[in-house]
């Protein structure tokens, strides 16, 4: 069950270099959305359809507030769509379709979970952390970015009570290097009952390997370009494992998949 809402923008703030957090009023989506699900947003900032990209853009939910009827997304300017999205201001409206896709499995997460996020991949994980902490789960987060200024979800994560371990490529905060370097520092026994990850393909490949070695179940959130977002066009196909005959659809079979069902190959499109 999903909804099409004409959502009033409440905030669309620059939170880092080329990074934005958008909050809008979409009460039906807010009431139904779950961590790992996404919204499909029409980019039409100036009522001039010909100047806007044709297709909607998918964004993982960064948070929902059912009481206030608000949802939020986190995004980086990467192309025409996100550039135009950054121009919309409070009081303007965007057509938002959602909540879409299969989110993270919340039940059975156990008492201690490990979240591993890189870049914008932190968005669905920060939302997930909120939910898990509410249910009394202990949450460790390994959070990586290029530089400290891009750790835009860190404050939210720390405020909600997650234990955060940070890595930046330039060393401006936390460990200097890859976020997956931090995996080696996890205790050998009982690192976590469950692992959730979202970020670059190479990062998730390491996380999947770690989960396999430690025998910890987990889930990853994949991304893909999409047309419909609801499973009818079959455009966001991804072959999860090299030998699979069939293609999974990121929008409707995912975007969240069991970590052991995905074979990550560095450099292959669609699995990042």
């Amino acid at each position: 069950m999903f909804f099409l809402e004409n959502a009033e923008i409440v905030e669309n703030d620059r939170v880092g270099d080329g990074l934005y957090e958008l909050k809008c009023r979409a009460p039906q989506i807010a009431g139904k959305g779950e961590p790992g699900q996404f919204v499909h947003v029409e980019i039409k900032p100036h009522q001039d359809a010909s100047a806007s990209p044709l297709l909607r853009r998918p964004f993982s939910l960064y948070g929902t507030d059912a009481e206030r009827g608000m949802i939020s997304i986190l995004y980086r300017i990467r192309g025409v769509g996100t550039s135009l999205l950054a121009e919309v201001g409070p009081g303007e409206y965007l057509s938002v379709l959602g909540p879409l896709g299969k989110g993270f499995t919340l039940s059975g997460a156990g008492s201690a979970v490990l979240l591993v996020g890189g870049g914008m991949g932190i968005a669905p994980l920060a939302y997930l952390a909120d939910r898990l902490l509410e249910s009394g789960c202990g949450v460790n987060v390994l959070y990586g970015a290029e530089t400290a200024r891009e750790l835009v979800a860190l404050e939210k994560l720390e405020q909600s009570g997650a234990r955060c371990h940070v890595a930046t490529m330039d060393g401006s905060r936390g460990h200097k290097g890859l976020v997956t370097d931090l995996l080696a520092r996890m205790p050998a026994e009982k690192a976590a009952d469950m692992i959730y990850s979202c970020g670059p393909s190479e990062m998730m490949a390491h996380v999947a390997q770690f989960a396999k070695e430690r025998g910890i179940p987990g889930e990853v959130s994949l991304e893909s370009n999409m047309a419909c977002g609801v499973g009818v066009c079959l455009g966001c196909a991804v072959r999860l494992k090299a030998g699979d005959r069939d293609y999974a659809k990121v929008c409707s079979d995912g975007p969240v998949f069991p970590i052991d069902q995905v074979e990550f190959e560095a450099g292959e499109g669609g699995r990042k």
């Binding site: 990209p53 370009n225 079959l234 196909a237 293609y247 499109g269």
Partner: peptide, 13 residues
Amino acid sequence: AGNPPPRIAETPC
């Protein structure tokens, strides 16, 4: 089974 991805690309209009 259909074609290998990527299966879609946006173009002007």
